[in-house]
Amino acid sequence: MAHFGYFLSCEEHGPAELVEQARLAEEAGFDCLWISDHYHPWNDQQGQSPFVWSVIGALSEAVSLPVETAVTCPTVRIHPAVIAQAAATSAVQLGGRFRLGVGSGEALNEHILGDAWPETPVRLEMLEEAVAVIRKLLTGEQVSHRGTHYTVENARLYTVPDEPVPIDVSAFGPQAAEVAARIGDGLITMTPDADMVERYRRGGGGVSPVSGGLKVCWGPDREEAVRTVHRLWPNESLPGELPQVLPTPRHFEQACELVTQEQIAESVPCGDDPDAHIEALAAFADAGFDAVYVNQIGKDQRGFFDFYRTKVLPALRG
């Protein structure tokens, strides 16, 4: 596997904490950064949700690592013409070290203006049109567009990077993987699914990068770490389309009453056994991924980074 990255969680941390974590990630030897793009956290226990584009501006001054949104929904809450400007500025600030990760989104973040939340096929159709609009605008040329879902009139970005911003597409099912292969410069997904990788590559993705992400909870007491995950991120264990359609943090809290600590213990690497963490990350390499991004759940970020710097990353690279 080429790269190991750290996944900054805007749902759980404020702007200053995220910038400090980015610094710690660079010092610990991580290669790159993901950062989530939310309007709401998944539940009130997570408790944060800063505006991602402001945080990216701060990251551009704080670290030298590449940064990618994982992921931005450019279809409902924010018009793709505005996302194009945000991505272009981020790429300029980061000196070309920016990738735009996009996806079809969740009602949790996107319904806030009262817009209808479409079915999956419509959301994917909107995503495809939005990406086309963004790519046109990133050229710096004047753009007018009248499509099925979006209108752009006489729009031109004046602050644009020297090279086009790569756009990676998130996918969790076959339909989305086909869209990602057709319109993306890379694939993002959250499970080490070799079949998904193969479907993406066969569908037109070729040798473009495939990136995955996972959450862990390092700590000296494994049972306490499991409790921390169960308190903060039980939504990781929700099945099917629930994460895409539930509209508020309170609805997620209600659904997560069905999630047990036993489920968490089986699905999220917890505790301080290096082998458990190494095995979880290596599963992505075994499935054909080019990069994997890991997020530490909970407050003990310094302990996590020290553990990965000394025990996990050297073993994975060795």
Rank of each mutant, 00 (worst) to 15 (best):
E110A: 08
V55P: 04
A87Q: 10
D115N: 13
L59R: 04
A88E: 09
F98K: 00
A70C: 09
S104V: 01
Q46R: 11
E106Y: 03
A87F: 10
M126Q: 10
E106N: 05
S104W: 06
T72F: 08
G101H: 08
I83E: 09
A86Y: 09
S49K: 06
W117Y: 07
V67G: 13
R97D: 15
R77L: 08
A91L: 04
R97E: 13
W117I: 09
E68H: 11
P50I: 02
G95C: 05
R123G: 11
G103A: 13
M126T: 02
M126G: 01
Q85I: 00
A84K: 07
A91I: 01
M126R: 11
F98T: 02
L59P: 05
I83W: 08
T69N: 08
A81D: 04
E61N: 05
E110G: 02
M126H: 03
L127A: 07
T69V: 07
R123M: 07
G105I: 02
G96W: 01
M126D: 00
F51D: 08
D115H: 06
A87L: 13
A88Q: 06
A58W: 00
A81R: 08
E61V: 00
H79E: 01
G95F: 06
G47I: 14
T120Y: 10
V63T: 12
G101L: 08
P80R: 01
I78T: 08
G101E: 10
V71W: 12
S90Q: 02
R77Q: 10
Q93F: 11
Q46M: 13
G95H: 05
I56P: 02
P66E: 14
V92G: 04
T72E: 02
W117V: 05
Q48M: 14
V82A: 15
Q45M: 07
V52T: 15
A70F: 10
D115Y: 02
S64I: 14
S104L: 03
L94G: 11
L100V: 01
L124Y: 03
R99M: 11
P118H: 14
G95D: 05
P118F: 09
G103K: 10
R97G: 09
L108P: 13
I83G: 14
T75Y: 04
G95M: 07
H79C: 01
A91M: 03
I112A: 13
T72R: 15
L59F: 04
A107Y: 02
A70N: 08
R77E: 13
L59Q: 04
G96F: 00
V122Y: 00
L113I: 13
A58Q: 07
G47N: 11
G103S: 11
A84D: 03
V102C: 09
E61Q: 12
L124G: 00
T72K: 12
R123P: 06
L127H: 08
R123L: 07
E68A: 15
R123E: 04
W117R: 09
Q85M: 03
C73L: 00
P74M: 07
G47F: 12
E125Q: 12
P121E: 02
L108N: 11
Q46C: 03
L108I: 13
S104N: 09
I78V: 13
L65Q: 07
G114S: 14
